[in-house]
Write a protein that binds this DNA or RNA. Structure first.
Lengths: 301, 301
DNA sequence: TCATATAGCTGACTTTAGTCAGGTAACCAG
DNA sequence: CTGGTTACCTGACTAAAGTCAGCTATATGA
């Protein structure tokens, strides 16, 4: 398919599917309540939710949200109480009546989904579900955003914790972050940089670059969350780091890795990296890779 | 996949894809204008549109639509004039400024689509577009509604005209509706019935049933529009007619067909019909089929 | 302990969306 | 040419959505 055809397909999909199904959904799942209230009730869910979380998830004005909560409280569907830790943070929970209402919405949501499947034949149903899952997955991949951030940023901290946890689980003999110590300051311009990958504001991956003026740049701490693995996020992070390394004047990037990280090693090999002799004494490293950078292919960002 | 898994997939899709992409679309394509105005401007399009058509397409109240048009006229984007034929029918057209604005929306729509494709690899793009097209097609199939209507209904007339046009094109020697004449009254309960298939209120297919108390029912005038062929609509129409025949007490349905309608013949054969000797002297018929009905499988509707 | 920041709340708005009951002009069938 | 229909318009609403400034209570860091 040509790019024009791809774009036309996506446009068509956006209009027809999005609008039609979206309208169906809204009409069906509000139960006479205003849409905003219904959505809020749904989003609070049986487990309850912090108000700040609701605000970001539904992208609502603080005042507006507060008012919506008062209405739901007035209807006896929701209770808002202070959380244990911080007295400013408040948590919304469903009352028994609210939970009953939520269960109805849950059931209606099932019915709506079934009403879409029902007119189709067995094989069409399977194809539809398969295609929907594929669209969702790839759209997820497309909505992952890469941006530089300070390694001390809460999103970066979350990624680095998950990274260390995973290495500890996978390395023979575990992983001690202290032994591969690297100061945050080394991952801040002009010494280096830290990239975080987010999916609707949730951190789902990271990667860091250490710049050594006059020598090869070094890629470190590339990690991708389970939830988005297999969507090419790792490859995008690598590509972005390489571009930035090139823009900063490096003509080579290199990295080290542990033999247990087989999918990472595969990624390096298929991305133009070749194995080189050890260039450091990282106790966790078994393989060292390098890739020459083509300055022409790396327009400054 | 089990039914539960299918439903879960569809629900997930509805929430994440529909809402996310829908919100993106709306935010991106309104250009500071209220959503309803932006949609209306878009829907009028470079070719202009009759107001009645806009009303049904956008599903708007007549008064509300009128007011929206006045606003767009006030902004110099649209002109509303009477159509040539009927002085009551009015047509909305874009002014030069309106056309310019429409072009911007068109471009933005392309950009939005591209922004979804851009972060993906070549092969992911192709897979996404493929899956989107599949979802759209199957959703279309699912949104086709079957309902009985009077053969004099405008939707029925439109289908029957298209049906006759197609037969005339395909039969050796053409087709003259008069020679296969059947009175509308024969296709109205209790003598028979007429089904129309609609996709968002547009007629896209039809089928008729002629009841002969004490004898086999007869299926006639099954037609499916090009736009939804291959989506199983024909099979659904047949199934629905058979159920209604069974509910009306028939134990057999039969039908005749022309040898040029190969895909119809294939449909009959794969739906449990077997060829029988001629039971009428329809000059256009080359094959006659019958299917026994199982009363247990046909719950009254 | 005091200044400052954070999390949420309230009141006073504006804008958008949507509905409904009349209207008027054009058409149409007898 | 008359009475009914159709296609659209206007005025007068209501409800929902969204914005903004200023407020209170709690936390935090020097």
């Amino acid at each position: 398919m040509s790019d024009e055809q791809l774009v036309a397909t996506v446009r068509h999909f956006n209009r027809s599917v999005t609008q039609r199904v979206g309208a169906l959904d809204d009409a069906y799942l509000t139960r006479g309540r205003p849409l905003a209230q219904a959505r809020l009730l749904w989003e609070i869910g049986p487990a309850g939710a912090e108000i700040a979380a609701l605000r970001t998830r539904l992208n609502l004005d603080a005042g507006y949200l507060s008012r919506l909560l008062r209405t739901l409280e007035g209807d006896g569907l929701v209770m808002v109480g202070s959380a244990d830790g911080d007295g400013r943070v408040r948590t919304a929970r469903l009352t028994a009546a609210g939970r009953a209402e939520w269960d109805v919405l849950d059931r209606l949501s099932d019915e709506l989904a079934w009403s879409i499947l029902a007119p189709l034949s067995e094989s069409q149903r399977a194809r539809l579900a398969g295609a929907m899952a594929e669209v969702e997955r790839l759209l997820m991949a497309s909505l992952v955003e890469l941006q530089p951030c300070h390694p001390g940023d809460p999103r970066a901290r979350a990624c680095l914790r998950a990274y260390a946890r995973e290495l500890d689980r996978r390395f023979d003999g575990g992983f001690d972050p202290a032994r591969s110590g690297m100061d945050d300051e080394e991952l801040v311009p002009p010494n280096g940089l830290f990239l975080v990958a987010t999916l609707s504001a949730e951190p789902v991956g990271c990667g860091a670059l250490r710049l050594h003026p006059g020598g090869p740049a070094e890629i470190k701490r590339v990690w991708v969350s389970e939830s988005v693995r297999g969507l090419g996020v790792g490859r995008r992070i690598m590509g972005e780091l390489e571009q930035r390394a090139s823009a900063a004047g490096a003509d080579t990037v290199r990295l080290d890795t542990n033999r247990t990280l087989t999918e990472a090693i595969r990624l390096y090999r298929t991305s133009g990296y070749h194995e080189i002799p050890a260039y450091n004494d990282n106790p966790y490293a078994h393989h060292w890779f390098a890739k020459p950078l083509d300055p022409a292919a790396a327009p400054p960002l």
